[in-house]
Amino acid sequence: MTTHDIELTVNETEVELTVDSRTLLVHALREDLDYTGPKVGCESSKCGACTVELDGDAVKSCTVLAVQADGASVRTVEGFADGDDLHPIQQQFSAEHGLQCGYCTPGMVTTTKHLLESNPDPTREEIRTALKGNICRCTGYQNVVNAVESAAAALAAGEGESAPDDVELQTDYPTPGED
């Protein structure tokens, strides 16, 4: 068994750690560095719960070796908020109730950021295509797509600034089957 000393920049903080050759990036982040935002779902690059930004690109951190990421910059969902101010994408996932249990949300939010950076005004079809690799077991896709649409609008309006913090939480949810 070989180990490697690696350096990562996680959420703009430089860290050094020692990993086994076979350690997956998601495990290094969660277990060695306590960034529990990325979740371990299927561990087979299907569900997207482990999605993080690696050198600016959304990737599935269960399918990257930690040692492969040596020298790279990683952003987990913990790096999205500015202090107590949630990132506009996070605010809209909250406002649109784009989550139920929340397990898939860090991955959804990270993929959404990647989408909106390359396509700031996506159609609903484009949103669904972009989120193909993020599975929600609560099947809350409708509100997820709404959240991404609202996030696109919020980012366009605010030029990337944080949206106002008085997000109105929706409470009058339709009864299932009504819509």
Partner: peptide, 9 residues
């Protein structure tokens, strides 16, 4: 081919 994250990598 595959999905957005896989296409990135």
């Amino acid at each position: 081919l595959a999905d957005l994250q896989i296409r990135n990598r």
